Simulated scan of single mutants.
Amino acid sequence: MALAVLLADQASKYWVLYDLHLPARGVVEILPVLNFAMVWNHGVTFGILAGDNATRLLIVVAGLAVVALSIWLWRAPRLTTSLAIGAIIGGATGNIISRLQYGAVVDFIDAHIGRYHWYVFNVADASIVCGVAVLIFDLRERPE
Rank of each mutant, 00 (worst) to 15 (best):
M1Q: 04
M1C: 12
A4Q: 07
A8Q: 06
D9N: 08
Q10N: 03
S12W: 01
K13R: 07
Y18L: 02
D19G: 04
H21W: 02
L22G: 08
A24C: 06
R25I: 09
V28K: 05
L31P: 04
V33H: 07
V33L: 12
V33Q: 07
F36D: 08
A37E: 13
M38G: 03
M38P: 00
M38V: 00
V39L: 12
V39A: 10
W40S: 14
W40F: 09
T45F: 12
F46R: 11
G47F: 09
G47Q: 06
G47T: 04
I48H: 10
A54N: 13
R56N: 13
L57E: 04
V60C: 08
V60A: 13
G63V: 08
G63P: 03
L64C: 15
L64F: 12
V67R: 00
A68D: 05
A68I: 12
S70D: 05
W72C: 07
W74C: 12
W74R: 15
R78M: 11
R78L: 10
R78D: 13
L79W: 14
T80F: 11
T81A: 14
I85S: 05
G86D: 06
G86Y: 00
I97A: 07
S98I: 01
S98V: 00
R99S: 05
Y102W: 12
Y102A: 07
D107Q: 01
F108M: 09
F108R: 00
D110I: 03
H112F: 07
H112N: 10
I113V: 15
G114Y: 09
G114D: 11
W118F: 15
Y119C: 03
V120S: 10
V120E: 09
F121E: 05
A124W: 01
D125T: 04
A126S: 15
A126Y: 00
S127K: 03
S127D: 05
V129S: 13
C130V: 15
V132N: 08
V132P: 08
V132G: 05
A133F: 08
I136A: 13
E144Q: 14
